[in-house]
Design a protein around this nucleic acid. Structure first.
Length: 275
DNA sequence: ACCACTACCTGAAGGC
DNA sequence: TGCCTTCAGGTAGTGG
């Protein structure tokens, strides 16, 4: 489910629901996620106050008291469901970790495929290699110059380069396809061959697409993904993703959208508009 | 060092 | 109905 816009929506929902509240209890149903959940997860978190939440790339950072952070990644199928004190928690088969707050609020991390992770770290976590090698935030400090530099030696296609979280943080398969379409750049072109103008277009359209998707509540593909169960609707705004065989949305173009496979992932693009 | 490929895991959808 | 194959929004490890 989650690329940057979806993670941002989840992060905002959690922030609103739990920031400033104390954790009264935690239930861990499964420890064998992508990264092993620490055995003492519950003990370390219970009785502590959630200070704030933030996002880095596709990771949600939960600042717990002063010396602890929860690091949450939704993987491919992860969701967070939040229950207000007046709602009753309805357990699901793949609820791995459930937090109960002192005011009766509760949230569950659900992830059928278990590609997600939820672990604890000291609050100087940003020193760790997971985040120190992560690229710039596309909505924040990313420039065309950064992009130009980071791909200047890359022989891989630009599609694959933009999926590399060291190049830019938070883009995934859907939004890379959409960005390249808007930028009129072929996903097949070698990253190192792009000029500064092309990099400028990618940076600009990344901002636009991501901001539009956040404003639309993210994209919902298979099931709901907001923390309150409501749906995002940016999937109706896709120009190319999952539109194989459909006519290109540009008025002046009558080509069909193609699907190819690059680095084992589907790429959707218009062969006429993206050169 | 880089890049493509594979594994990780469950569930939904489509073909027969 | 059911069985089989394919595919899915991500990341990390390997092997060429």
């Amino acid at each position: 489910m989650p690329e940057l816009p979806e993670v941002e929506i989840v992060c905002r929902g959690m922030d609103k629901a739990v920031t400033g509240k104390e954790v009264s209890s935690v239930k861990v149903n499964r420890y064998d996620l992508r990264v092993e959940v620490p055995e003492d997860f519950g003990q370390r978190v219970t009785g502590k106050v959630i200070k704030s939440l933030s996002r880095r790339g596709k990771y949600i950072i939960i600042n717990i008291d002063d010396d602890l952070v929860g690091v949450l990644h939704l993987g491919m199928s992860g969701r967070v469901r939040i229950f207000s004190p007046s709602d009753e928690y309805d357990p699901q088969k793949h609820d791995h970790i459930i937090f109960n707050m002192d005011d009766g609020t509760c949230f569950a991390f659900e992830d059928p495929r278990r590609f997600g992770m939820f672990y604890l770290a000291a609050n100087d976590w940003e020193e760790g290699k997971r985040f120190s090698s992560m690229g710039p935030e596309p909505l924040d400090d990313w420039t065309a110059n950064d992009l130009m530099q980071s791909i200047s030696n890359k022989k891989s296609p630009i599609k694959s380069a933009l999926l590399d979280q060291r190049v830019v943080a938070g883009l995934g398969n859907i939004y890379v396809c959409e960005v390249l379409f808007r930028s009129h750049i072929s996903p097949i072109s070698q990253a190192k061959d792009l000029d500064m103008k092309a990099c400028e277009r990618i940076v600009k359209h990344s901002r636009d697409v991501l901001n539009e998707a956040i404003a639309a509540g993210g994209s919902t593909l298979k099931d709901y993904q907001h923390t309150d169960g409501s749906l995002g609707y940016f999937q109706h705004g896709f120009s190319v993703y999952d539109r194989e065989g459909i006519e290109c949305s540009n008025d002046s173009c009558s080509s069909e959208i193609l699907r190819i496979v690059q680095s084992g992932r589907s790429t959707f693009y218009c062969p006429s508009c993206q050169k």
